[in-house]
C-alpha cells in the first residue's frame, strides 16, 4: 500500500517544538556544552572531554552531599508518607469540618518557600523564636546555628510541616473515593480495623500514594530554598544538600564545567530513582504472569 506523505503536519508541531526547544532542550544543551569544556577566562573555552565527569564522580564533596540528600529524602519520606496517611484517615468524611480541615491542610502549601524558611529561621531562634525559646527553656540544648543535629532536626521538621499536607490531601482524595459498600461488606465479613486498612484503604490509595512518593522524593531531592534560608547549608557543610552544593560550585566558585557535569549527574540520578520508584510501586500490586491451571 502506498503511504501518503503530508508534510503539513510539521507546521502544527512546530510551535510546541520551538517552545520545548527554548524552555528545555537549548538550556540543557548549554549545560552539556559547559560540562565538556574548560575556560581560563576571557570567554575562551577548551575541549576537556569527560574530565569533569570523572572529577565529580570521584569527588568526596559530591559524595557527601549526595549521601546527605539521600538520607534527607529517605527520612522525610519515612515520616511524611505514614503521617500523611494517618492524618488523612483521621480527617472527617462529611459535614462542616471537612472544609475547615481541607483549608487548614492547604495553608502550608500556599506559603512561598523562602517565607517558610524565614518563618522557621525565626521560629527556631532561642532568643526571639517561640520554638527555640521553649525547647531551650525545657533544658534541651538546642541551637541550629551551631549544632548539626539541631540543624537537621529543624530542616526536617520544617519540611514535614510544609509538605505533609500534600500527602494528606492526596490520600484523603483516595479515601473518599472508596464506596461505602466496601466498608459495609468488610463489617459483614467481620474484618478488624487493621484488615479494613490493609485490604481496602491501602490498596485503594495505591495510585495516589505512588504520586505522593514520587512528588515528595523529587521535591526533597531538589530541595534548595528552605534549608538555604534557615541554615545556609551549615553549620559547616552539615545541611549542604545537592542543589545547595551545586549553587556554591557554579555561582560561588564559578566552576562552570564541574557544576555543569554535576547538574547532569544530578539530573540522571533523579530520573533513575524516580523510574525505580515508579516501576517498583506499579508492579507491586499486579498479577504475576497468569498461570492457567490445566485440567
Amino acid at each position: 500500500m502506498e503511504k501518503t506523505w503530508n508534510n503539513k503536519a510539521w507546521f502544527f508541531v512546530l510551535p510546541v517544538l520551538l517552545l520545548v526547544a527554548f524552555s528545555a532542550v537549548i538550556p540543557l544543551m548549554t549545560v552539556v556544552n559547559y560540562s565538556v569544556q574548560d575556560t581560563f577566562g576571557n570567554n575562551q573555552f577548551f575541549w576537556n572531554g569527560t574530565e569533569w565527569f570523572k572529577e565529580i564522580l570521584t569527588s568526596e564533596r559530591f559524595h557527601d552531599s549526595l549521601i546527605r540528600n539521600l538520607i534527607f529524602s529517605g527520612l522525610i519520606l519515612a515520616i511524611e508518607i505514614p503521617l500523611g496517611i494517618i492524618v488523612a484517615l483521621a480527617m472527617p468524611k462529611k459535614g462542616f469540618w471537612v472544609s475547615v480541615c481541607l483549608v487548614l491542610m492547604a495553608l502550608p502549601l500556599l506559603i512561598p518557600w523562602n517565607v517558610v524558611g524565614t518563618i522557621w529561621q525565626v521560629f527556631g531562634r532561642t532568643d526571639i523564636g517561640l520554638l527555640g525559646y521553649t525547647v531551650d527553656a525545657l533544658g534541651i540544648d538546642y541551637n541550629y546555628v551551631a549544632d548539626p543535629f539541631a540543624a537537621w532536626v529543624t530542616v526536617i521538621v520544617m519540611d514535614v510541616w510544609h509538605w505533609t499536607s500534600l500527602v494528606v490531601l492526596l490520600c484523603y482524595a483516595g479515601l473518599v473515593s472508596i464506596p461505602d459498600a466496601y466498608y459495609q461488606a468488610a463489617k459483614i465479613d467481620g474484618a478488624s480495623r487493621w484488615a479494613v486498612f490493609r485490604y481496602i484503604q491501602l490498596p485503594k490509595m495505591g495510585r495516589v500514594l505512588l504520586i505522593a512518593v514520587l512528588l515528595r522524593f523529587m521535591d526533597s531531592f531538589m530541595i534548595y530554598t528552605e534549608p538555604f534560608v534557615v541554615t545556609g547549608g551549615g553549620p559547616g557543610n552539615s545541611t549542604t544538600f545537592l542543589s545547595i552544593d551545586l549553587v556554591k560550585l557554579a555561582i560561588g566558585q564559578f566552576n562552570l564545567g564541574e557544576a555543569a557535569a554535576m547538574s547532569l549527574v544530578y539530573f540522571l540520578i533523579i530520573l533513575a530513582l524516580s523510574w525505580v520508584f515508579y516501576t517498583v510501586m506499579t508492579n507491586a500490586g499486579t498479577d504475576k504472569p497468569v498461570k492457567e491451571i490445566s485440567e
Partner: peptide, 21 residues
C-alpha cells in the same frame, strides 16, 4: 446488633472484592 453480630451476608449493587487478594 451490628451486621457482624447478626451473622448475615450481603451482596451489594457493585461487586465488592478485596483487590489485592
Amino acid at each position: 446488633l451490628t451486621p457482624e453480630a447478626r451473622n448475615i451476608a450481603q451482596v451489594f449493587q457493585f461487586p465488592v472484592i478485596y483487590d489485592t487478594m
